[in-house]
């Protein structure tokens, strides 16, 4: 029996789709059978981030309307064994799917897959309600900005009201240099405000833009700091205890010297 995890945030542009792509790929690399659902109907993007945009035949709306079978709509990712994508419809709107249909779809997929990861649209309207309808767990994404944290707080409230207990927090685009200077809220600051459990922290990393350009999730190469962060989050998702990586990347000469002289690095 699989588990449905919704990736949500409230605010747009904080990294829901990137996170969905990376966690899905990460789980598949750990030999799990995974399906990614793009629930952002009308603003389809997960296919593009995954590099699967040229292979779409049927979409989520076709499936729930019974125009095709689930199997026909699932795109198999040939690079990663066990990874599938159910793309969103691009020419329809959020009302093309109902929460009941999402629940049914998730239940059907649970028989076949270990993890069903739902990429939620921004906002808290119908599209969001559909996306969370079938979810067992939720990951709330925020960045260290006031607007993103405020929206995350709102979403956490709604999730809890919808019986999705204990959502987990992913803090994206952290810049350790700014945190150090006191110009960016730290991980501790954000946890203090939102008061939920942390699943991981992803640094602001230009490699994410590069890998998105190529349609290859950063988690797969695992060399970039963001890719490593996503690998760790994937393991935590599966229940493993992994310490947070040192985002400051303290392998440089300067930081080594600092350590040598007993400077505390953040």
């Amino acid at each position: 029996m699989g588990e449905v995890i919704v990736i949500t945030s409230g605010k747009g542009g904080v990294g829901k789709t990137t996170t969905t792509a990376n966690l899905g790929t990460g789980l598949a690399l750990l030999d799990k059978k995974v399906v990614l659902i793009d629930a952002d109907i009308g603003l389809r993007n997960l296919d593009l981030v995954m590099g699967l945009e040229n292979r779409i035949v049927y979409d989520l709306v076709n499936v729930v309307e019974g125009a095709c079978r689930i199997k026909q709509a699932l795109i198999k990712d040939k690079r990663f064994e066990g990874l599938y994508l159910l793309p969103a419809a691009q020419t329809r709107d959020k009302n093309a799917v109902s929460p009941e249909q999402m629940v049914k779809l998730c239940d059907d997929l649970k028989d076949e897959f270990d993890y069903i990861i739902v990429d939620c649209p921004a906002g808290i309207e119908q599209g969001f309600k559909n996306a969370i309808a079938g979810a067992d767990r939720a990951i709330v994404i925020t960045t260290p900005e006031v607007s993103a944290v405020r929206d995350a707080d709102r979403v956490i409230g709604i999730l809890e009201a919808n019986e999705i207990k204990k959502p987990m927090l992913l803090i994206n685009r952290v810049r350790p240099d700014m945190v150090k200077k006191g110009d960016m809220m730290s991980i501790e600051d954000i946890i203090d405000i939102l008061a939920i459990d942390l699943i991981g922290v992803v640094p602001d990393d230009e490699n994410i833009i590069i890998s998105t350009n190529r349609g290859e999730p950063a988690v797969a190469e695992g060399k970039s700091l963001a890719g490593q962060a996503y690998q760790n989050i994937t393991k935590r998702l599966m229940g493993e205890e992994v310490p947070l990586i040192d985002l400051a990347g303290n392998d440089g000469f300067l930081s080594k010297m600092k350590k040598l002289f007993g400077f505390k690095s953040a």
Partner: peptide, 16 residues
């Protein structure tokens, strides 16, 4: 000195 993140935190706490 009161850093910009202190301001951010304070404002957020109030609005929340």
């Amino acid at each position: 000195r009161r850093t910009s993140k202190d301001v951010a935190k304070e404002r957020l706490k109030l609005v929340l």
